[in-house]
Amino acid sequence: MLSFALQWQQYGGGSNEEIYVNFGLSPMQYFMRLLRILRSPTDLDMSVISELNAICASRLDTERARHHDEAGHPGDER
């Protein structure tokens, strides 16, 4: 999972499709697991860890917003 993250780092973490094909996980599951990995001891440079953390946070925010929008809002006439 970490090698995938490093491979896709410069592209914002990889597409949702690549994540699913490689891991069988939703993007939310993948980025949450990656955050846990990044919190464990690693040989990665702190700047790389920081960038990967930022990618995870951004992608998780995007996924949460997408799920919120898909769920609709109370009172919406859809």
Score class of each variant (00 low, 15 high):
residue 28 M to G: 04
residue 25 L to N: 03
residue 47 S to W: 11
residue 13 G to E: 09
residue 37 I to L: 08
residue 22 N to I: 03
residue 39 R to Q: 14
residue 37 I to N: 00
residue 15 S to N: 05
residue 24 G to P: 05
residue 37 I to M: 07
residue 44 L to R: 01
residue 47 S to Y: 13
residue 33 R to A: 06
residue 47 S to C: 07
residue 47 S to R: 14
residue 13 G to C: 14
residue 24 G to A: 13
residue 47 S to N: 12
residue 14 G to T: 01
residue 33 R to V: 00
residue 41 P to T: 05
residue 11 Y to P: 00
residue 46 M to E: 15
residue 21 V to L: 15
residue 39 R to V: 01
residue 28 M to S: 12
residue 14 G to H: 01
residue 32 M to V: 10
residue 15 S to Q: 03
residue 9 Q to L: 15
residue 16 N to Q: 05
residue 40 S to F: 05
residue 21 V to Y: 10
residue 37 I to K: 02
residue 10 Q to R: 14
residue 20 Y to N: 07
residue 27 P to D: 07
residue 30 Y to T: 00
residue 9 Q to C: 15
residue 45 D to N: 09
residue 9 Q to V: 06
residue 16 N to L: 07
residue 18 E to Q: 09
residue 17 E to M: 05
residue 43 D to H: 05
residue 14 G to Y: 00
residue 23 F to T: 01
residue 45 D to S: 08
residue 47 S to Q: 13
residue 24 G to M: 11
residue 49 I to R: 14
residue 15 S to V: 06
residue 28 M to I: 06
residue 12 G to E: 10
residue 46 M to I: 14
residue 32 M to P: 00
residue 43 D to E: 10
residue 27 P to V: 04
residue 23 F to M: 08
residue 44 L to D: 01
residue 39 R to K: 11
residue 24 G to I: 09
residue 32 M to N: 11
residue 38 L to A: 11
residue 25 L to F: 14
residue 48 V to K: 01
residue 31 F to Y: 15
residue 31 F to W: 10
residue 20 Y to T: 02
residue 20 Y to R: 05
